[in-house]
């Protein structure tokens, strides 16, 4: 199988086969970060630009390290320090960057669809590193890789995603990914934070965390994104935490081999208590480790370029 796409914009448009191929490839990249010299020459001479218009530590550093470990040259642009503040449009910024002969663009933007728009106007591959509340494909791919490495299969797994589903791009991408690979997904949270039409994506809705915990194989906690919660969605952080925060008491009713996941950054004491986040069932740091491999795989697969000659051995 070959990966035929120019861009990686979301998991909604990917087939099960494509997702499995990316995970398979990513599995081969895990070991590179454990070598004495953590670098392979595959993207030598290519320039990758990371255009981030929203704050990010994990994703930006993960992309940058992935690029560097593949020997690409990297440039980071943040909206606050670019000509965006002088009123330049996204298209003009991107076109100007592309005029400097870059080979790939990684973009995070607060507007849903911004990477899709750039993918249309640019010739180079575009990778969506999170577009508003829409999609965050590499996060979902690393969640999938973590589960694949820990469990081997997705068939028959019950994945529960807990928290602010409404504003979460991670939830959206995870729902596409897990359901396509054969897992059953439940979303759980206060009714105000569950989109009304969410069942149409094939998920089950629950408003009672205590009820879903015993049958879950994966508990995926989402961060309460205070920066996106402009209106009042629940009475108080403390009440949210009582009902939907995962603590040791609630965890006692879970399956013994349940995996606790969280895309980060953690709000300790809100959606997850420190004992659970640092406990033996937590794979939160494995997610970060596999994230690097996933991003290396995606960069590698999209770097193919245009058809120049037939493949040869």
């Amino acid at each position: 199988m070959k990966f035929e796409r120019k861009d990686l914009l979301g998991l909604e448009e990917l087939s099960r086969g494509e997702i499995e191929f990316i995970l398979e490839t990513a599995g081969s990249f895990v070991e590179i970060s454990e070598r004495p010299i953590k670098k392979v020459p595959v993207l030598r001479g290519l320039t990758v630009v990371n255009l981030f218009s929203e704050p990010s530590t994990r994703t930006r550093i993960s992309f940058e390290l992935a690029e560097k470990r593949l020997s690409a040259d990297t440039v980071n642009i943040t909206a606050s320090s670019s000509s965006v503040v002088k009123g330049e449009t996204l298209k003009d910024t991107a076109k100007n960057i592309e005029a400097m002969n870059i080979d790939m663009l990684v973009v995070r933007h607060n507007a849903p669809g911004a990477p899709h728009y750039l993918a249309d106007v640019l010739h180079c591959p575009v990778i969506n590193a999170g577009d508003g509340p829409h999609e965050h494909p590499t996060q979902a791919l690393l969640d999938l890789l973590t589960v694949k490495q820990k469990r081997g299969t997705f068939e028959g797994l019950n994945v529960t995603i807990i928290g602010d589903i409404l504003h979460s791009r991670v939830a959206r991408s995870d729902i596409w990914g897990f359901t396509k690979l054969g897992a059953a997904v439940t979303v759980c949270g206060p009714p105000t934070l569950i989109p009304p039409d969410i069942e149409s994506t094939g998920v089950t809705v629950s408003y009672d965390l205590e009820e879903v915990i015993p049958r879950s194989d994966i508990l995926m906690l989402l961060r309460i994104q205070t920066e996106r919660l402009k209106e009042c969605f629940f009475p108080s952080i403390r009440e949210y935490s009582d009902f939907f925060g995962l603590d040791s008491a609630k965890l006692e009713r879970a399956k013994p081999d349940v995996l606790i996941m969280h895309p980060g950054p953690l709000n300790r004491g809100v959606e997850i208590t420190p004992e659970v986040a640092d406990g033996p069932r937590s794979v939160i740091l494995d997610q970060v480790r596999y994230g690097l491999a996933v991003r290396m795989a995606v960069l590698y697969l999209l770097s193919g370029g245009e058809l120049k000659s037939e493949d040869s051995d």
Binding site: S303, K308, S309
Partner: peptide, 9 residues
């Protein structure tokens, strides 16, 4: 850089 799509790793 010469092949059309990246080979399987």
């Amino acid at each position: 850089q010469l092949v059309s799509k990246q080979p399987v790793v």
